[in-house]
């Protein structure tokens, strides 16, 4: 059953990624683009986990972990930059 649904699930995540890409290209504002990037990294991580399932290997978990960490830090840095015009504040 898992093997049967896996391709469709991967397509659904892929379409989700495409929707986010559309929002990133279209904008209109910078927060929209950050939000789209945030959604894209989350979906890319899910696709990577699915790929690991398809290949029957646990190797991709490490990559998922790295994407999760870097994606979050990227989102925070970009949002913080919009908010304050600076990422690391020294006072």
């Amino acid at each position: 059953m898992t093997a049967a649904v896996l391709p469709y699930v991967a397509v659904a995540f892929g379409v989700a990624l495409a929707f986010a890409l559309y929002r990133m290209v279209r904008g209109p504002g910078l927060p929209d683009r950050i939000l789209a990037l945030d959604t894209m990294y989350v979906n890319a991580m899910a696709l990577l986990v699915l790929f690991g399932l398809m290949l029957d290997t646990v190797l991709y978990f490490e990559a998922a972990l790295v994407i999760a960490l870097l994606g979050f830090i990227g989102t925070v840095a970009l949002a913080k930059f919009l908010l304050r015009g600076d990422v690391v504040e020294i006072d």
Partner: peptide, 18 residues
């Protein structure tokens, strides 16, 4: 299979909303 389908549905709807 259930978790995969449910997860795919929610991810799809979330991006559709976006």
């Amino acid at each position: 299979a259930f978790l995969l389908v449910a997860g795919a549905f929610f991810a799809f709807v979330g991006s559709l909303g976006l």
